[in-house]
């Protein structure tokens, strides 16, 4: 593996817009231990921060993990470094969505049954998180 040494625009922007500096993480992995949805992730939460530390931007953009994150804030609540990983996850999602190439989900993806039963709150949050 070649570790990126150049500048990563994703990571630079993320530091500013999320107010989180991945360098502050010492990889205790408490976030991964606390996360309720790791089973569906291809990278564990602490590995996402590790990838940010190493500048592995492209790998992160390919990862499923940021899209699995449910923004439940459990990681941030328990982080001993006072980092808010939910904000970093949002940064990775947004950088895809803002390229207008990463919409994960649109109205066409909904089944008629879902449209009928899902509470409005679920639809709005789904579109907010997965669509630009």
């Amino acid at each position: 593996m070649i570790i990126a040494t150049g500048k990563s625009s994703l990571i630079d922007e993320m530091k500013v817009q999320s107010g989180q500096n991945p360098a502050e993480c010492y990889q205790c992995a408490k976030c991964s231990a606390a996360c309720p949805v790791t089973a569906a992730m291809d990278l564990l939460p602490h590995q996402v921060i590790r990838y940010l530390q190493l500048g592995l931007e492209e790998d992160l953009l390919k990862s499923k993990t940021p899209w699995i994150c449910a923004s439940c804030f459990t990681c941030a609540a328990r982080c001993p470094r006072d980092l808010d990983l939910a904000r970093m996850m949002e940064g990775i999602r947004l950088s895809m969505l803002r390229r207008r190439e990463g919409n994960k989900f649109g109205p066409a993806d909904l089944t008629p049954e879902q449209l009928e039963k899902l509470p409005q709150q679920a639809l709005v949050s789904g579109f907010r998180k997965y669509n630009k």
Binding site: C28, A29, K30, A33, C35, H46, T74, P80
Partner: peptide
């Protein structure tokens, strides 16, 4: 058994 990581809850 030494496990490198933390406990969530």
């Amino acid at each position: 058994a030494y496990l490198r990581g933390q406990v969530g809850k």
